[in-house]
Amino acid sequence: MTYKIQRHKSITKRKSNSKRKWIFYLISLVLLLFVAIGIYKFRDGFLYYLGFKTNKNIATLSKEERKLADIRIYEVLHKHDDKAIGFDVSEYQSKIDWEQTYHIDEAFELSFVFIRATAGKNKIDTRFKENWKGAKERQIIRGAYHYYRPNENSLEQAENFITTVKLQKGDLPPVLDIEKLPKSQSIDSLKVGLRRWLKKVEKHYKVKPIIYSGESYYTDFLKKEFSDYPLWIANYNFWRNDLESDWLFWQFTEKAQIQGIEGMVDINIFNGDTNKLLLKCIR
């Protein structure tokens, strides 16, 4: 009797172990599948990195992080090589050698740049004037943006931008950069302020401004009321490879390297080629 019980326990234990092994194998298979999909999805980027990249690195990223960033950047740009590619800068990029800012890794031409002009009701970017002039001399399509501070007067912020930025023929429309939620007012009050800024700036420049925001922020708080404005969306999702049809610009990374600029830079893709981009400029 004891022997039968022990034998039964032994068989049960073997079945349990076998079941755990199958679960382990299944999980391992799923993980390997995800890895394989990832490698296939970014195969051009991996091949590019293995074949052509050097050991250049920057202090803010580890070597592995730098490698992954370069792979993603190459893969996305390679997929959209029929579209206009650009970047955006502010005083945080320090002094820029504009004569060096023609390509990313000598493979992708840079056609446009957005430059921070102002923030809030009284902040002027300390390098806006030199960047604005440098971009003009570089003969790259340029645009200026305002960083909106939700807890400051919207009309004073619009006036700050208007006083600072003198748009010319061939420049991109003005941009309102909204990323933060208000601390001392409601979302409805924020929307009223944004609308006032947009209306005042549009009246002054005679062109509809572009709204820049993160995809989640825009979807959650702005889409319902502001879908009639051109969009510049930030989305750094590693698995996203394409723009939505209603995105005018897509900022897909903040980790690019451009010759002539210290540190990391945001890269943007326009939803069309350079000829279509020129049609969006002030005439």
Rank of each mutant, 00 (worst) to 15 (best):
Q100W: 04
K280E: 14
M264P: 00
L68W: 12
G38M: 11
S94D: 13
I258L: 10
Q168Y: 11
I71S: 03
T164E: 08
S245W: 05
I23H: 10
D88P: 00
W232G: 03
A135N: 02
I282R: 03
N241T: 14
N122T: 12
N153L: 03
V89I: 15
N122S: 15
D97F: 10
I269N: 01
K208M: 13
A107K: 15
N55R: 10
F24P: 00
K95W: 12
L155A: 07
K67V: 12
H103N: 13
L155E: 11
F52K: 15
R14H: 13
L32A: 12
H146N: 00
Q6R: 15
A107G: 10
S18W: 07
D88H: 04
D105A: 13
R283A: 14
G214L: 02
I267R: 05
K183L: 14
Y217L: 03
R66M: 15
S154T: 02
Y3N: 09
N151W: 04
Y148K: 05
G170N: 05
L68M: 14
Y25G: 02
R149P: 07
I282Y: 01
L26C: 13
K9W: 14
R14P: 02
R72T: 06
V113W: 02
K56S: 15
S245A: 09
L32R: 07
T164G: 06
W98S: 06
P230G: 12
L50M: 13
I269W: 01
L231Y: 00
Y217P: 03
K63V: 12
I71R: 02
M1F: 10
Y102N: 14
G45Q: 05
L279S: 15
C281Q: 02
Y236F: 08
D188G: 08
H103I: 07
G170Y: 05
F128P: 06
S184A: 12
N268F: 04
T118V: 06
I162Y: 05
F108I: 00
K200N: 08
D242E: 11
K255P: 02
Y48E: 09
L277T: 00
G272Q: 05
W22D: 11
E156W: 08
K15R: 14
I141K: 04
L176S: 04
K83W: 03
Y205I: 07
P173L: 06
K121T: 11
K129Y: 09
S28E: 13
D81F: 04
Y145T: 03
I85H: 07
N235P: 03
E75F: 05
D88R: 01
N122D: 14
S94P: 00
G51C: 06
Y218T: 02
S184L: 11
S18Y: 09
G260Q: 04
L155S: 09
K133I: 12
V201F: 01
G193M: 03
N275D: 15
Y49N: 06
H204T: 14
S111R: 09
K95I: 15
K121H: 06
Y236L: 03
Q185C: 12
I211E: 01
A144R: 02
E202L: 12
N55T: 08
K41H: 13
K19A: 13
K199H: 11
L50S: 14
A117R: 01
T54H: 11
D188W: 06
A144Y: 00
L243G: 04
I258R: 04
L194E: 01
V207Y: 08
W250L: 00
S227I: 08
K123T: 15
A144D: 02
E91W: 12
L167P: 00
A69Y: 06
A234H: 01
